[in-house]
């Protein structure tokens, strides 16, 4: 990895890149940075929090969705299939707005909702952000896991059954780990896609990284600087995710295929 960067051509490119960064730092307007740095860090935290929470929840939902489609009876497979198709066939932005504004326009018609204990949470924007991002991730990942579950070799399951393993043990010890392993290469990609989806929740008043950059732009009318920094921040996060998944993939038993 490091050695690949030491070819003269790449050194020149790195040099040019460094020159570009220096040029940006010197000739562009960064005077806003100190004032907005605390807000930006909060935003970064919200972005990462949303990413992690919705991926974990989404994955937990994706497992039954994938399973239902791969081996479930038709009355489970069909709804799971429809769910995945609808989620994958419509823009996430529309889903977010449907949940936030659609439900928001319904609530006033039911006074008991406002009196319920859930109301303080339902007033906030984040439950809708988490819900829509979770459903979206589950829809895409459910499709991936469908293939993954179907690809686990029958012989292994039969062998486990022959050993008299109970069903839930077969699932957790053999089926699920193998499905996850075969889905792992796509998981990294899906995670980056999810990262790229998080800015959409800025449109429902969540103040994450993108919203902070938007606020800088709106307050100071400086266009490029916050956007460039924002793009750089996402590049770094995506890079960390990629390296993380590469590390996970590198560990664990090598499978003979």
């Amino acid at each position: 990895m490091m050695r690949a960067m030491l070819i003269p051509r790449r050194l020149i490119m790195l040099g040019l890149f460094a020159a570009f960064v220096v040029w940006c730092a010197v000739s562009m307007d960064w005077s806003w940075l100190p004032r907005y740095a605390p807000l930006a860090l909060d935003g970064l935290w919200v972005t990462i929090w949303l990413l992690v929470v919705t991926i974990v929840l989404g994955f937990m939902l994706a497992v039954p969705l994938g399973l239902a489609q791969a081996i479930g009876p038709w009355y489970l497979a069909v709804p799971a299939r429809v769910f995945c198709t609808v989620i994958r066939g419509t823009p996430l932005l529309l889903q977010i707005w449907l949940l936030y504004y659609g439900l928001g326009s319904l609530f006033p018609q039911f006074p008991w909702i406002r009196e319920s204990e859930l109301w303080p949470y339902l007033r906030q924007a984040w439950p809708y952000a988490v819900l829509s991002l979770t459903l979206s991730y589950a829809g895409y990942e459910g499709e991936v896991l469908r293939g993954a579950f179907a690809s686990v070799q029958k012989g292994q399951i039969e062998a486990a059954r022959a050993f008299g393993m109970p069903r839930h043990k077969i699932f957790f010890r053999i089926w699920l780990p193998q499905a996850i392993r075969s889905a792992l290469p796509t998981l990294g990609g899906e995670t980056i896609l999810q990262l790229k989806a998080t800015p959409l929740v800025a449109t429902i008043t969540i103040v994450e990284l993108y919203a902070v950059a938007g606020r800088v732009r709106q307050d100071t009318f400086i266009i490029y600087e916050p956007l460039l920094l924002l793009a750089a921040a996402y590049l770094v996060i995506a890079g960390i995710i990629t390296l993380g998944f590469r590390w996970i993939e590198g560990r664990g038993p090598r499978m003979s295929r």
């Binding site: 504004y101 928001g104 326009s105 406002r114 109301w119 007033r123 924007a125 008043t205």
Partner: peptide, 18 residues
Amino acid sequence: RIYQTQDEANQDLYSGRI
């Protein structure tokens, strides 16, 4: 809470979110 448009703020006032 900061909204992109006045309409969104009005909508959330109506639904009791603010």
